[in-house]
């Protein structure tokens, strides 16, 4: 099936992958996200920054409807993925999440072997016709997750036996294995040591070639290092959104400036 909107796949960087318009999120009585508009570009790393509780993670979880698993959470507004509203009644969140993968704050490998961790997504989405194909998918994912060299001799060892940084790269590889179009990362380095962080950041930079990556981060340095576009959230509002270099050198909004100079946060 070939959709009109995807016709120019080869078109350069600035094709808009996700367009959010007037998004409001309520957690019970708590108004967590207030009227946010954001455009996420394809083949770009977009960083969400802001103080704790500003709503950046909540907004990220709206993008692949992970908030559906929380009963009291209510989302309004529209989020278009390639021009289709993902909150449309006809959309199956399961199908959506195959296109919009997610990596979490704490590495969460399944209590299975490394191989089965990676193969899990491809299996449930029926991506491999036989074992050989599956093997290939697993190897490709592990290579692109930059962890193949470390685990290729122990694919049947449990994933929980790896170090923290390896576990997180395994989780990234696991998310890549289902060949998503967008990869959401919720503070992927907050549980890692500096060396592992550096490895993961390098990986994110490489992933940009094929994916649209959205990363929530607590560290402004990290946002500056890995992202091309940055959005600053504060108290549920999107305060400022623009090129990372602009945000960090010449912010328009005084709140953004206070935050990046360390006065709020």
């Amino acid at each position: 099936m070939y959709d009109a909107l995807h016709r120019q796949k080869e078109v350069d960087v600035n094709e808009i992958k996700i367009a959010a318009r007037g998004v409001q999120v309520h957690y019970g009585d708590n108004h967590a996200i207030k009227d946010v508009d954001v455009d996420i570009e394809d083949k770009t790393v977009t960083a969400f920054i802001g103080p704790s509780g500003c709503g950046k993670s909540t907004f990220l979880r709206c993008l692949n409807r992970m908030n559906d698993t929380i009963p009291i959470c209510r989302v309004e507004g529209s989020i278009l993925l390639d021009g289709e509203d993902i909150y449309d009644k006809r959309v199956d969140p399961v199908q959506l999440r195959a296109k919009v993968g997610m990596v979490f704050q704490k590495p969460n490998p399944f209590p299975k072997s490394i191989y089965d961790n990676i193969a899990y997504g491809p299996r449930i989405h029926g991506m491999a016709r036989n074992k050989a194909e599956l093997d290939e998918i697993v190897e490709r994912a592990l290579r692109r997750g930059a962890i193949w060299e470390e685990v290729k001799d122990r694919l049947n060892a449990p994933g929980t036996g790896l170090s923290g940084g390896q576990q997180q790269r395994l989780c990234i590889a696991r998310a890549i294995a289902t060949e998503p179009e967008v990869l959401l990362m919720d503070e992927p380095c907050s549980a890692l040591d500096p060396i592992a962080t550096a490895q993961v950041e390098e990986l994110i930079d490489e992933l940009r070639e094929n994916y649209s990556v959205v990363i929530v981060t607590h560290s402004m340095q990290q946002a500056a290092r890995v992202s091309q576009r940055t959005a600053f959230f504060h108290l549920g509002n999107l305060v400022e959104f623009g090129d990372t270099s602009t945000i960090f050198t010449n912010p328009e909004d005084p709140r953004t400036e206070s935050y990046i100079t360390g006065r709020i946060g």
Partner: peptide
């Protein structure tokens, strides 16, 4: 660290509308 050749060989992303459930999802 990444193997660039593998990425070239990857199948094109499935382009399907989210508004239609494919057979497997059903």
């Amino acid at each position: 660290m990444t193997d660039a050749t593998l990425h070239d060989g990857q199948p094109a992303p499935r382009k399907s509308s989210l508004h239609q459930l494919d057979a497997l999802t059903k």
